[in-house]
Design a protein around this nucleic acid. Structure first.
Length: 189
DNA sequence: CATGGGATTGACT
DNA sequence: GTCAATCCCATGC
């Protein structure tokens, strides 16, 4: 998708990424869960300001912000809002579509519902690493393709973030309702 | 230069 | 439910 898709309010981008397809090489999956981060909110890496680690967060929209969590897990984010604003959408879960056997080999797991049901799982399944930080999601090697159809409002589920007091009333997390491929049960609003 | 925390996962009790 | 694994990087001395 083009840059203009990402150059909007990060919550809107997080909502509309549901149903889109993440593709890397032979592997691809439909996004079923996202989480928005914005520099105004302390859980966001950009909250502390521009550093070497977080500079991608402030980069032009439509780029991939990839970082390592807990020294083990790779997180894939799509940079949103205008250049200079630190905001991004974490891709939290996918419904596997293509390259499923390769995903199973990379994960060492057979169960389709366990292949991409978490932010660290989906990057492992798709072979995404830190070397993909600051690459374009429009030109690849990782690309995000538009949803085949728009989601009906009833299919969308929103939730507050867990463990954050400030701005806890805002709906930062989005998923496709009743999808079997999300990372975990969410608190209902 | 040393330290400590993090947007997680999976194994084990 | 609890807990360890393990790398990057921001902060502080």
């Amino acid at each position: 998708m083009q840059t203009s898709f990402y150059e909007r309010d990060v919550l809107t981008v997080a909502r509309e990424l549901l149903g889109c397809v993440v593709r890397h090489g032979a592997c691809a999956g439909v996004i079923v869960e996202t989480e928005a981060y914005h520099e105004s909110e302390p859980a966001c890496h950009a909250f502390i300001g521009l550093t070497a680690r977080t500079q991608t967060l402030f980069a032009a929209p439509g780029y991939a912000y990839v970082y390592l969590s807990y020294g083990i897990h790779v997180m894939l984010n799509a940079v949103a809002e205008v250049e200079g604003v630190g905001a991004a959408v974490l891709i939290r879960a996918l419904q596997p579509v293509d390259g499923i056997e390769l995903m199973r080999a990379r994960r060492g797991v057979q169960d389709l519902e366990q292949l991409c049901s978490g932010p660290g799982k989906l990057t492992q399944a798709l072979g995404i690493g830190l070397e993909h930080n600051a690459t374009s999601l429009a030109t690849g090697p990782i690309v995000i393709e538009a949803a085949e159809r728009g989601l009906a409002p009833a299919e969308l589920e929103a939730s507050v973030r867990i463990g954050i007091t400030k701005a806890a009333e805002l709906e930062w997390r989005f998923s496709i309702r009743d999808s079997r491929f999300v990372s975990r049960p969410w608190p209902r609003i």
